[in-house]
Amino acid sequence: MSLDHSDVEKIAHLARMALDESQIDAYAKDLSNILGLVEALEVANTDHVEPMAHPLHMAQRLRQDQVTEKDHREENQSISPSVESGLYLVPQVIE
């Protein structure tokens, strides 16, 4: 599987990640090489093989729906790039 310039632009958009225009072709080459490495999986016979999502085949643990943490809003927001009155600020979304 080989990716071209526009494929990389599309993927970078899906990942919400700006790329330097001058580096897109280099990414296309690297990503194509990595996908080339991954192609080795195609030959493996996986008929009747269950997908493995977790090494210990563990079920998700449940807990009581209780408050266990105190309020950390101030500490957590003290490291935020932009906060006002306890709210995170981002560029205006709704006109």
Partner: peptide, 14 residues
């Protein structure tokens, strides 16, 4: 083609 396949080959390796 990728993720599901890799989860299956992961099982073979395990």
């Amino acid at each position: 083609a990728y993720y599901l396949k890799a989860q299956k080959t992961r099982h073979l390796i395990s």
